[in-house]
Amino acid sequence: MIELYILLLFMIAAAVIAVEIRDLLSAVVAVGAVGLALSVAFLVLKAPDLAITQLVVEIICLIILIRATVTRDRVAARGGAALAVGAAACAFVVLFLALARGPFAALPPFGAPLFRTAELYVEAGARGESEPNLVSTIILNWRAYDTLGEATVLFTAVIGVLALLRRHGRKGAAAEEETE
């Protein structure tokens, strides 16, 4: 499992770079590195479906993020927050860690999942009531409500993007004239 540790350390390093670097384009590239390392980590963790999806989703995410940052006058993130905000954030992080200790103790040890609900699915699959790809069967057969909700959320997000980027809205145009 050494490769998993290497990947996680790489992800943490890339995340720190993404958070702390000034240039926004470099930050976006660093977050892309985190996402692609996550894709490889999914592969190591025996989740090939997720690896494929994460890979292509990361590419689209990068294209959109670069679109938002690069084509205009190279904005750099200037100046950190005030000292008080940073201290408060650190305090929150420490508090979170302290509160997370209980749940951590209750977790099953790494490598031995609970496997309670999934057992039903695997048994049904062994009886032949499943496609070969168990993940696909779960999202479309056993958990179809989730998938319906997911498709609806994506649909709503696209409608939201279209509504936000609409240029000649009736009210929007009036409001813009008012302010200018």
């Binding site: 090939p48 479906d49 690896a51 494929i52 999806t53 292509v56 989703v57 590419i59 689209i60 790809n133």
Partner: peptide, 17 residues
């Protein structure tokens, strides 16, 4: 998607790409 890794989500994203 029924037999190998992939399926509607990943394939849809690839088509968009």
């Amino acid at each position: 998607g029924y037999a190998s890794p992939g399926g509607g989500f990943a394939g849809g994203v690839i088509i968009a790409l």
